[in-house]
Simulated scan of single mutants.
Amino acid sequence: MSHLPDPANLVHGTGLSTTSHLQKVLVSELARLSQLTVTPLARQALSGAGPFETALRRDAAQQGGAVIAEYKQASPSLGPFAQGTPLLPQLRAYQEGGASAFSILAEPAYFKGSTKDLQAAAELGLPRLYKGFVIAEAQLAEAEATGAEAVLLIARVLKGHTAAFAKAARARGLEPLVELHDLTEVGFAQEAEARLVGINARDLSTFTLGEPTAAPLRRAFPDAVLIRESGLATPEDARAALRAGFDAVLIGEALMRSADPRGFLKRALAELRTEVS
């Protein structure tokens, strides 16, 4: 068993406003921990690249960029904007559109997520990201039990404990995707030896990154898979992010709102495939 900090201390030490969406979700997850009992799988520890990273690198090389397509029915800011969208038909549309991997919400209260969705998605064969708000070992055990290949770790929340959580994730066979909100958090991901680095910033030109490209992150993480995680409303937005140096993009709300998610993804990737052919 790894030595991780007390979840309550993490949540109450974020420095976030009690009215912020992220803090509300964290408080909710803290309460959920008292009821969380899971039986994790007996998986081998991970030392290098796993299936999630491998899929992203392969498609970034072969088609000019990879897409992590997200299944998300609700959010704290939007409410239940896509609640009731059938899981497997949506994921099949993503797969047919060229998605490299899935991101599936696990948080139930605000995002209406479910670990059952992660388990059900296994039949499609693409690697899966457990999209949650990890503050405890029990959530890593939950992610492991779903069979997910990767898990999201938010540096803004975990701060100096990010490396410990990344180590604990790898011990369970999970690939940690370390999410940053600005460059002040780079050190946390570096200490964690992150191989998958995401940036969740809707305006990269003003969100303390200095320039609207992947260049600042590439300098900090020359060998990592760099993922743009937000602010991608159209296929053109996704293409622009990939052309700006990101290896992959994570698209959620736009795909869930789209009447044709398969076509959305095909349009996002079509010109990129031409450029690398």
Rank of each mutant, 00 (worst) to 15 (best):
2 S>A: 14
4 L>R: 09
7 P>F: 01
9 N>P: 09
9 N>T: 15
10 L>W: 04
14 T>Y: 00
19 T>P: 14
20 S>G: 13
21 H>K: 14
21 H>I: 11
25 V>R: 00
35 Q>F: 10
37 T>D: 11
37 T>I: 13
39 T>N: 15
43 R>M: 14
45 A>S: 14
51 P>L: 09
52 F>M: 04
53 E>L: 09
54 T>G: 10
56 L>I: 06
60 A>T: 06
62 Q>M: 15
64 G>I: 02
66 A>V: 00
66 A>C: 10
67 V>W: 04
67 V>C: 06
71 Y>T: 02
75 S>W: 06
76 P>H: 05
79 G>V: 08
80 P>E: 07
81 F>M: 13
81 F>H: 14
86 P>L: 08
92 R>C: 00
92 R>F: 00
93 A>E: 08
93 A>P: 03
96 E>W: 10
98 G>H: 03
99 A>S: 12
101 A>T: 04
102 F>G: 06
102 F>M: 12
107 E>V: 10
108 P>R: 07
110 Y>W: 14
110 Y>P: 06
110 Y>F: 15
112 K>R: 15
114 S>H: 05
114 S>N: 09
117 D>S: 12
120 A>T: 12
121 A>Y: 01
126 L>C: 07
127 P>C: 07
127 P>V: 09
131 K>I: 05
132 G>A: 11
135 I>C: 02
136 A>N: 10
136 A>K: 09
137 E>D: 11
139 Q>S: 07
139 Q>F: 02
143 A>N: 05
149 E>I: 09
151 V>A: 06
152 L>T: 04
153 L>Q: 11
153 L>F: 11
156 R>M: 13
157 V>S: 02
159 K>Y: 08
160 G>Y: 07
160 G>N: 14
160 G>S: 10
165 F>E: 02
167 K>G: 08
170 R>I: 07
171 A>P: 01
172 R>Q: 13
173 G>W: 01
174 L>Q: 07
175 E>C: 04
177 L>D: 01
178 V>Q: 06
179 E>D: 09
179 E>F: 04
180 L>E: 00
181 H>Y: 15
182 D>F: 04
185 E>W: 04
186 V>L: 14
190 Q>I: 07
190 Q>F: 06
195 R>A: 12
197 V>H: 02
200 N>V: 09
200 N>R: 11
206 T>Y: 15
207 F>P: 11
212 P>E: 03
214 A>Q: 02
215 A>S: 13
217 L>I: 05
220 A>D: 07
226 L>D: 01
226 L>Q: 00
227 I>Q: 05
228 R>N: 12
231 G>D: 00
231 G>C: 04
232 L>I: 02
234 T>Q: 03
235 P>Y: 03
236 E>D: 15
238 A>N: 05
239 R>S: 05
242 L>Y: 06
246 F>M: 12
247 D>C: 07
251 I>N: 05
252 G>A: 01
254 A>N: 09
258 S>D: 13
261 P>F: 05
262 R>H: 13
263 G>M: 08
263 G>V: 08
264 F>H: 12
264 F>D: 12
264 F>N: 15
265 L>A: 05
267 R>N: 09
272 L>V: 01
